[in-house]
């Protein structure tokens, strides 16, 4: 099996400071990779480099295009990269407000990506939007309401629908459950797990919440001060941490 995403020697510096350094990994189709680490460990910098929001200083991000060719997304032209981020990629922000248009109805938010790739039939766009709202458990009657009238959990689910509507193959998630209370978090994780399995999505999830990766991720990467300190299968890393920092991280979780 060939990897969907091949990350080679990615480094990003902020002046003299290290954002992240020499990160390497492969992501295979249908695999969910978790990146954990404390604040400032470089996990969001890495995610933004992979998703094309930041340009890394060194390294390659090779993505398997629909024609099967591996293309470096760092050096490809901006129109191509933006096309990818509208079609094959999805990016779920921590704050739903960053990923939604707050003054456009829920249906318009979901339909935007369809219209951006050329859909021009109102009836079909709307039907698709309603279908996707249903999949993320938002009732059809809310299709014309604005996200400002939605609760935090609903906004996050709407953001997920908006991202998945074009059938992406790779989803980037930055703390998708941050700022939600635990019961809403649990429902969202359940939903995400279902969608990832059902659609065979590959995903990269950045979080500091070990419970989230335990539930969602097949593989785990632990970051500290811009470096990857440990990688492995999620259960293996969490149950038998090898690096001192990972041991600290795992033992810091409060047991209820």
């Amino acid at each position: 099996m060939t990897p969907l995403l091949k990350v080679e020697n990615i480094s990003k510096y902020y002046g003299q400071r290290i954002g992240c350094q020499d990160v390497n990994f492969d992501l295979y189709p249908g695999e969910v990779m978790g990146i954990v680490g404390e604040s400032g460990s470089g996990k969001s910098t890495l995610l933004n480099c992979l998703a094309g929001h930041l340009t890394p200083e060194t390294g390659e991000v090779l993505f398997e295009m629909r024609d099967g060719a591996m293309r470096d997304t760092v050096t490809m032209s901006e129109p191509e990269r933006r096309m990818l981020s509208r079609t094959d990629w999805a990016f779920v922000h921590q704050h739903a407000r960053d990923g939604l248009r707050m003054n456009v109805s829920a249906g318009g938010n979901v339909g935007e990506r369809l219209m951006a790739v050329g859909a021009r039939h109102y009836g079909n766009i709307r039907a698709e939007a309603v279908d996707w709202l249903g999949r993320v458990e938002i009732s059809e009657s809310r299709v014309d309401d604005r996200p400002t009238q939605f609760s935090g959990g609903m906004q996050q689910r709407l953001q997920i629908a908006r991202n998945l509507v074009t059938g992406p193959r790779l989803v980037f998630m930055d703390e998708p459950t941050g700022g939600l209370d635990v019961s809403v978090q649990a429902r969202l994780l359940d939903l995400l797990r279902g969608l990832v399995r059902e659609m065979g999505l590959s995903a990269i999830i950045v979080t500091h919440d070990l419970a989230v990766v335990r539930l969602l991720a097949d593989r785990l990467m632990v970051m500290k001060d811009g470096h990857v300190v440990e990688t492995g299968l999620t259960d293996q890393v969490l149950d038998d941490p090898q690096h001192a920092y990972t041991q600290l991280l795992v033992s810091s979780v409060l047991q209820v």
Binding site: E78, P79, R82, R86, R101, V104, S105, G107, G108, G111, E112, R113, M115, A116, V117, R120, Y122, I125, R126, V143, D144
Partner: peptide
């Protein structure tokens, strides 16, 4: 970059409303 999908979002909102 000829990214004009947003223009249709406005028209979509018109029809929805």
């Amino acid at each position: 970059l000829e990214e004009y999908g947003l223009m249709h979002v406005k028209l979509y909102e018109d029809i929805a409303k």
